[in-house]
Design a protein around this nucleic acid. Structure first.
Lengths: 301, 301
DNA sequence: TCGATTGCCTGACTAAAGTCAGCGATATGC
DNA sequence: GCATATCGCTGACTTTAGTCAGGCAATCGA
């Protein structure tokens, strides 16, 4: 890694995350303990399930419970059973009381005030530059926080991706998409040694996937590449594809193939720029219009 | 303030300072309590005075002392009297022991590792973008953290600026600069109601200054505008000048004048772009080649 | 339908972070 | 030379943050 890049990132971490972060916390806290303030914020005007709060804030179950009791004691939130009938009677929902709503609004206002105080001393031109640069940093940091790793296709997060994949294909293909009419992909084919399913997550939320089938005596085949639109354009698809290629290459396959629909223009552009070349149809996939192939480099090291 | 700008800054604060900040702390801590790790880092290979550490970290005197004892207990730092003879015998200096130097190096390495881990998942092109955007954000946040406020010209920080000003003039003028040969500016003239001295600080370090003399029955006069090169190009000079203009206008002056040396090209450009126009000499300042004047807008509100 | 699990809770605990008053030695101002 | 401040230190204290074991009720799986 270039040492000037590393130094620049470190300087950024120091100056920005330390100073701005500390100030932001202070503004947020507003007299209250920081953890309580954060929790109050996360409960939000619409309320939230206790389990969701625990996941979002990454807190211990006991600790969260205690924090909720403290906020309840201050009359800011009320924790009760879930509204909807027939729901799980164990899950409880935290909601803001009127006083809590007021405190929340104050937090919101203070946050706005802090952001404004950062922009205020700058000229309009510099404000635009700062906002643009912040958006860029945020975008690229999000890209860098996406984790791609193997995952059983039966995992709920994998299932969520596969459902999202099917939904998107149904939406984008000219004549819809019915998995039953498409060449089937069975879970067993996406589990080593037959193949692999890769899941991309951002803060442990699923945001993309991809799979490869290692056919015996035939080129390996890429399937089910999908990226959530919240992280599109950040290179996640490219990373998934690259990892799939390395996976196949590491196991001795020298050729990778895939088929795709003509409406998936970004995907087609990505395959081209990743070194795939279009070939004659190698299967009778009903929803495919283009077939691609790439010769894999032998594994490094 | 534009609400989309405010929202963008808030999103940035949330995503970047929270997540990256928290991770950075974790990497930094390295098993140790965070406060100890930070202190160890601030002591650094060259050592540091206890008072300086207190100022930099913003810690309570007692707390800092305790933290130092803890690090001493772990054999990482040694606190002793200041080296130099004749110094204040009360001030004490913290220095790293060999073990402390090793721990410090480990912190340094971990920080590098963390920065690398942010860059690692990105393509080279995106790395360049990220580093550039981070540098931009840092630059502009620094600009926004500079505080400009009135200050007695006798304040040590003001004195430091005035010394730096004289040093820089001596360096840049063709034939040096001797305040004794220049039109004199006395401290009393820079104290209300005769005038004002503005000090620009970054994290309470002085980084710039400027003054205005409110002459009776004559245009007000700008003097001693200087900006440290660490924050040059961030609009600090412009802010100081603007504040001086508002100060004079608020007290009824309608015209502002100043003189400057031909070698101070950035300053001359700034005066031009701030609406000053060149006029005939209005004084016999030995080191001046250009004289400027601006009509002030009456105060708002 | 019974055992295991899950969701939320409480009690008991620890560690870290931070505050405050005051002490002893040194330095400074009048 | 004396009062007054400053510098760093210690002791006593509080608050915040967080962990862990276990308990109760609802739910799920076989």
């Amino acid at each position: 890694m270039r040492s000037d890049f590393v130094a620049a990132v470190r300087r950024f971490n120091r100056t920005v995350t330390q100073r701005v972060g500390a100030l932001d916390d202070e503004y947020m806290a507003c007299g209250r303990p920081l953890a309580q303030a954060r929790l109050l914020w996360e409960v939000g005007p619409d309320g939230a399930e206790v389990a969701a709060l625990r996941a979002r804030l990454g807190l211990d179950s006991g600790y969260l419970s205690r924090l909720l009791r403290a906020l309840e004691g201050d009359g800011l939130v009320s924790v009760g059973p879930a509204e909807q009938a027939g729901g799980d009677a164990r899950v409880r929902v935290a909601a803001l009381t009127p006083a809590g709503r007021a405190a929340w609004a104050e937090l919101d206002e203070r946050s706005d005030g802090f952001a404004s105080s950062i922009l205020a001393p700058l000229t309009e031109h510099r404000r635009e530059q700062l906002v643009a640069a912040m958006a860029q940093v945020e975008r690229l940091l999000i890209a860098s926080m996406v984790v791609v790793e193997p995952c059983p296709p039966g995992d709920p997060r994998a299932r969520a991706c596969l459902r999202a994949y099917a939904r998107e294909m149904a939406r984008r293909f000219d004549d819809g998409f019915d998995p039953a009419l498409s060449n089937p992909v069975h879970d067993e084919e996406l589990v080593p040694p037959a193949g692999v399913f890769l899941l991309a997550t951002l803060n442990s939320e699923p945001v993309g996937c991809g799979a490869v089938k290692l056919h015996r005596d035939a080129p390996a085949e890429v399937k089910r590449v999908w990226v959530a639109d919240t992280v599109r354009g950040l290179g996640v698809g490219r990373r998934i594809l690259g990892d799939l290629e390395r996976y196949a290459a590491a196991r001795g396959w020298t050729t990778l193939r895939l088929d795709t629909n003509r409406n998936l223009t970004e995907a087609i552009a990505m395959y081209h720029s990743a070194g795939y070349r279009e070939i004659e149809p190698y299967n009778s996939e009903r929803f495919a219009h283009h077939w691609f192939e790439k010769q894999l480099d032998p594994p490094q090291g």
